[in-house]
């Protein structure tokens, strides 16, 4: 088992008159192809941790290793590039661009990356939507979709550039039980394909379907039922 993403003593403090500690000394390794559920009370720093892991935010101290490589020295452009190529985000609200059809939303990251020909992009986007049972909605605007459909469209967009990491922040928060279970099943399937999936959820039932459960309180890890050991990580980095 290889450690794809590693938080090392990760700390994020929001500066201000009263500094707020969002994440406090988190050490967590995420194995490639694993599905981790993160839970914890509101305000415990789950989202903040996800932003740090996903190159959206920079830690105050500590660091994030991506495939063993430090990321602290990367500039904004390089981090944007990493998000484009390696990470797929799914948020609680679907965050689709309202003027664009579902298909165009899914095409957006591909067009930015521009690794495929336009017809190949379309074919890939349609294949992703089909796999999520969204093929019939490709031409619709986000406003014309149900909540579950929007979230699946958002997942399709997150998968557009075939990312190694899927970071989902309460992706089921706005969904009913049936749709929530479906979304988690999809995330689980993505992990089976070899992607590293990290999902924040309040729902213990859904968390139970993941490979591993991590619990945060006040920005700290208070429980982790399948920790990736430090030694595994060191082994990885040694040769």
């Amino acid at each position: 088992m290889s450690v794809a993403l590693q938080a090392v003593d990760l700390t994020r403090v929001l500066p201000g008159p009263v500094p707020t500690t969002l994440v406090a000394g988190v050490d967590l390794g995420f194995a490639a192809g694993s599905f981790t559920a993160i839970s914890g009370p509101s305000g415990s720093g789950k989202s903040s941790l996800l932003y740090l892991l996903g190159m959206l935010d920079r830690p105050t101290s500590g660091e994030v290793l991506l495939s063993g490589q430090p990321t602290a020295s990367l500039d904004d452009e390089q981090r944007a590039r990493l998000r484009l190529e390696r990470f797929g985000f799914v948020f609680q609200f679907h965050f689709l661009l309202p003027e664009f059809s579902v298909l165009d939303n899914v095409l957006l990251p591909m067009r930015k990356l521009a690794r495929r020909s336009p017809p190949a992009m379309r074919a890939h986007a349609l294949a992703l939507l089909d796999a999520l049972d969204m093929g019939a909605c490709a031409g619709k605007l986000p406003a014309a979709l149900s909540g579950g459909q929007r979230q699946r469209a958002a997942i399709a967009r997150a998968l557009a550039n075939d990312p190694a990491f899927i970071l989902a922040d309460e992706p089921t928060g706005a969904l009913d039980t049936r749709n929530a279970a479906a979304v988690f099943a999809i995330l689980s399937g993505l992990a089976r394909q070899g992607r590293t999936v990290i999902a924040v959820t309040h729902d213990q039932g859904l968390a139970a379907t993941a490979d591993r459960r991590v619990r945060l309180v006040d920005g700290r890890v208070v429980a982790d039922d399948a920790p990736v050991t430090e030694s595994a990580c060191v082994e990885r980095m040694a040769p």
Binding site: D76, A80, P98, P109, K112
Partner: peptide
């Protein structure tokens, strides 16, 4: 919001 989404997807400044 849309700008933030595009940034999170990986569009640069």
């Amino acid at each position: 919001r849309d700008i933030a989404i595009m940034r999170s997807i990986g569009l640069a400044g």
